[in-house]
């Protein structure tokens, strides 16, 4: 059993995105999600840390960070969605795909994943208007030419609420 006492968001994320991981390590990914849910300012701190990792020049570190981001969107609820739905964070993703910023130095795989995630959130979180604004801006710029095919597990559609029990 891993020692979890005293772990910070940063230390969980460093482990979850460690370039020497041979594969995605879900113990650390879920540990990071749980830590976000425990901390008052978890989502604010987490998106800042994630943005930094997603912009890593090491593809594997960035890919793992995007997996963590997706896991957080599924497991950290509305507080986390609200932070992702701010231009402050969305701009960091835009930088990754835009040739005016980091786009020329980022792998096609990372850019495609960022675009898939953004598009999937426009479908799953229509109330987060800034996500749509950001995505449509990328389309206007020609950075996104066609909506990607989003795998079903990316759609973030919440499961229906439990039915009330009939007596």
């Amino acid at each position: 059993m891993a020692e979890t006492e005293g772990e910070s968001l940063e230390s969980w994320l460093n482990k979850a995105t460690n370039p020497s991981n041979r594969q995605e390590d879900w113990e650390y990914i879920i540990g990071f999600c749980d830590q976000i849910n425990k901390e008052l300012e978890g989502p604010q701190i987490a998106v800042r840390l994630l943005a930094h990792k997603i912009q890593s020049p090491q593809e594997w570190e960035a890919v793992q960070a995007l997996t963590v981001l997706e896991a957080c969107m599924k497991n950290c609820g509305r507080r986390f969605h609200n932070e992702v739905g701010k231009f402050r964070f969305l701009n960091e993703l835009i930088k990754v795909v835009s040739p005016k910023y980091l786009g020329d130095r980022v792998s096609e795989k990372v850019k495609a994943t960022v675009i898939e995630l953004l598009y999937s959130w426009t479908l799953a979180l229509p109330e987060e208007a800034k996500i749509k604004d950001a995505y449509h801006m990328l389309k206007r710029q020609g950075i996104v030419q066609l909506d990607p095919a989003v795998p079903m597990d990316r759609t973030l559609i919440p499961s229906p609420p439990p039915r009330p029990k009939n007596p």
């Binding site: 231009f87 835009i94 800034k130």
Partner: peptide, 15 residues
């Protein structure tokens, strides 16, 4: 108030 000013400062990246 904090949220309002944060909203005002939150802009899409210039392209």
């Amino acid at each position: 108030l904090g949220e309002e000013s944060e909203e005002r400062d939150d802009h899409l990246l210039p392209m």
